[in-house]
Write a protein that binds this DNA or RNA. Sequence first.
DNA 1: TTGAAAGCGTTACCAA
DNA 2: TTGGTAACGCTTTCAA
Lengths: 355, 355
Amino acid sequence: MVQIPKQQPAQPSAALEAVSAGPVAPAGPARGAVPTSADVARLAGVSRATVSYVLNNTSAVRISEPTRRRVREAAKELGYVPHAAARSLRAGHTRIVLMPTPEVPVGPLYSGFLNELQWALSRLDYTVVQYGSVGLGGEDAARAWAELRPVAVLAPVAMGPDGIGILKRSGAKVVITLGPDPVAGTHALIMDHREVGRAAGAHLLARGHRRVGVVMPREEGLDMFALPRLAGVQESGAQVVRLPLAYEEDDAARAAAHLRELGLDAVFAYNDEYAMLLMRALQDAGADIPGEVAVIGADDLMLGRLLRPRLSTVRIDLPSGEELAGLVDRLVRDPAAAPEVRDVLVASTVPREST
Amino acid sequence: MVQIPKQQPAQPSAALEAVSAGPVAPAGPARGAVPTSADVARLAGVSRATVSYVLNNTSAVRISEPTRRRVREAAKELGYVPHAAARSLRAGHTRIVLMPTPEVPVGPLYSGFLNELQWALSRLDYTVVQYGSVGLGGEDAARAWAELRPVAVLAPVAMGPDGIGILKRSGAKVVITLGPDPVAGTHALIMDHREVGRAAGAHLLARGHRRVGVVMPREEGLDMFALPRLAGVQESGAQVVRLPLAYEEDDAARAAAHLRELGLDAVFAYNDEYAMLLMRALQDAGADIPGEVAVIGADDLMLGRLLRPRLSTVRIDLPSGEELAGLVDRLVRDPAAAPEVRDVLVASTVPREST
DNA sequence: TTGAAAGCGTTACCAA
DNA sequence: TTGGTAACGCTTTCAA
């Protein structure tokens, strides 16, 4: 209460400008400074409130046409752009949807899915933020994400109940987990890749193959999908041998030789790309496909249809990005809705010539 | 001045809490409300300033160990997470790097590149925001982006000088365009896909092929790359025929027939995937490759090595994501640096068996 | 129809 | 060593 009580609480920035820009009172924004709505107001000769009304087309208030024009012209002249952070600070919420990025390139199918989802969300006027958790554990990652106060989070499987609690408590209206298992207290899109393995295993068994090799990519980060796919094959009742395979020709040749030594009569190759790699190595070594060994991939990529023999595969249907974005939007509007658990991964075999 | 004038200007939220949560003054945050640093301060019995000092490890100030502990415990108990928007509002800047997403799936090479870049930026502690411009024209898009006050923008080619002006004026320290041509006033990473076409054309000419078909994907959005690649082939001096091709087997069969009718002796197939598609159609129609018609792709994907004949291709080297992220970081620290124009796309032919 | 002012959650200056 | 307070840019209620 000693000095400068509350003399001119309204125009502090104007004071700063006077210092840095030169002359006195009604100056424009300082050179190099970003114009604010106050600058627009000053230039248009109105109050900040009026500027806000005009630029947001607030319908509850009637502003005269001349005033509107003056404000708009001032805004344009200054190149004024509203400040999203300030706006959402005031509003108390954001339109941010957080999508933690998978750490690893994760195949054309899934990344296409994420991409589509992203676009669909943008179209619904959400701001999609990709956040790398970068070496943070579950809870630390959740805290980092929570700083952005996202209205919704689409979390990969790693997220546990604690992380979810942190996000919810920070104001996230919706947390949706994508993964093999539901997490208590939130919506879940179950994407159980065991189904993929099961489909492949059942198909191979039906064709009379018992001893099945399952390709396990050596590439980091693919375990997330590879392990459940393996488990699925095992559940189908086939006799399973793991075949580690790096995405390189040399390693494929080695794996092909190994596979023949083991006397396996079929291979589930993780996906179509690894299948193509391994199939080529087998053919180069003189193996007959599917006579000596049957090969099945997954993801139903175009390339499978182009191989000879044509590659059998497991087709994976994921919901469209638009559909999912719609779900997110619906849940944001009605956050009280009971946790929804949806099985969204549908696997079906596409028999072709390689099995 | 009728009710509740300005009695307790300091604790408005506390007042709200009193209403919704029950008892009087020093309550915790209202149930369901997001805890703020003020809540932490209250619980720890210190001021907000002290909370800030403790949680940010401000070195300029010495806080007693017991106080630190009290603050930290209070924060943990409440599940306090700082509010990024408030922080950056106060700070006057963000660590947001805006990366407008391409509207279309754009091939494994480029999307891998973007993905890598994104991770590298996260690792440098930037927040990467993917923004879909969704039908906004250049300037409107720029304005939408500017609302986030990004410290840096990595813009696709579309951005013109006006858009750049808007971003710069809104406080973006760095704008980098990715595209075929530099834009005045900013840094540019020149990715000139004509080089790809030139390399392919030169290679085919050197092998004695004159009449070259150039595959033009019918898929939307790929023109961005396809047109310059076409132009590059034309510049190489070959006689060029455009071959529109959708990424489907049927259309490939049609295109293959058409190509043979035209008597072309070589094809540059846009990329390896289209090359594989077309090559298969040609082979199925009984064409000898490279005897009757030579085929060259681009991007040097693994699949090219697995085809028979092995696919010749144009290898594209882009800088690593880490390198680029480093560049962004350097420019952010030194925004005054003269605009840098770097040619980052290096194309080299990888001759194999298909030419 | 317009304006004044409060307040969103932070941090940083200055005083105690 | 700690606390009070102003200020970041915006929206919105209340008054005029």
